[in-house]
Computed example of a mutant assay.
Amino acid sequence: MNQEPVAAAPEYCHFFKTLLVEELELETDFQRLHYGQCAIVGRLVLESKFYRLENVRVKSLPNNLSLPEGTISLLLLGLTFDKAAEQSVASGSYCIVRGEVVLCNVVQPNSRMLTSRGVHDKFTSLSHNPAAQKEYLSRLRLTHKPALDLWFIQSIDRAEELLRSRLEIRGLTVR
């Protein structure tokens, strides 16, 4: 019997790892989605009563490595009009947000949120049935989207420069 090895369960990230909106929103394998805390720079927008964080274009990157600003956005959970006013952030402003990455059910918004660890555990529990595993992941992609369970938000200036600096640091430290 030639079974693929089961990937290790993701470990919770207990520090605010710097991520891009694109890294969360474009991840198609929810088992590989960041698990835990993160800090993301983006532009705050209000869409249909929900706040979202749009990607920021880093102009110093080659065109084939970055999307135009505002192309994609990440749902922010827990940000209300009152909280936005209290934190002095407004739609259209550049912000740094800190929180925890979750998977939000966009078909049934009041249902329980998932994490990449939860997806991994459920997938592993179906290891005796590869067809059920495939069905589970397919169904999940139709109903769930990455989101950030917001803990803190702050307006910032010079978002593109901050992102460029963070990407440079990441390039120097990741091998």
Rank of each mutant, 00 (worst) to 15 (best):
I169F: 07
K59T: 07
G171T: 12
S66L: 00
L167K: 09
L76G: 01
V6R: 10
N64E: 02
Q133A: 00
P10M: 00
Q133I: 01
F15E: 12
A131Q: 08
F50N: 07
G70K: 13
A8G: 11
R32N: 05
G36M: 14
N63H: 03
E22W: 13
L19Y: 05
C104K: 14
A90V: 03
N55T: 13
H34E: 14
Q3M: 09
Y136F: 02
I169K: 15
V45I: 15
F16D: 09
C95P: 01
I72N: 02
H120Q: 06
P62Q: 04
L76R: 06
L77D: 01
R170K: 15
E160C: 02
E54Q: 14
L26I: 12
F152E: 09
L114N: 02
G70D: 09
T28N: 09
F123A: 08
F15C: 07
M1L: 04
I169P: 02
L74N: 11
C38N: 05
R139D: 07
V101T: 11
Y94H: 10
P62K: 08
G78V: 00
R43Y: 09
S66E: 05
F50K: 14
Q3W: 02
N2T: 10
Y136D: 00
P109Q: 03
I40K: 13
L148P: 03
Y35A: 01
S66M: 08
F50L: 14
S111T: 06
E54N: 13
A39G: 09
T80V: 00
L75I: 01
R158N: 15
C104P: 01
L103P: 04
P146N: 10
H34A: 15
L61K: 14
P146C: 15
A84T: 07
K134M: 01
D121Y: 05
L53S: 15
V119M: 00
L167T: 06
P146Q: 13
H14Y: 12
T115F: 08
W151P: 04
E86H: 02
R158S: 11
V21Y: 11
L24P: 05
T143H: 07
S48Q: 09
Q37L: 15
L77G: 00
G70W: 13
C38Q: 03
V119C: 02
Q37S: 15
F30Y: 12
A39N: 07
I96F: 05
Q108F: 05
N129G: 07
R57W: 01
G118F: 09
E161C: 12
Q133L: 01
C104H: 14
L167M: 15
F81Q: 02
S93N: 05
H14K: 14
V41M: 11
K83W: 04
V6S: 03
S88G: 07
H34Q: 14
V56L: 03
F123R: 04
E69T: 08
A147Q: 08
A132I: 12
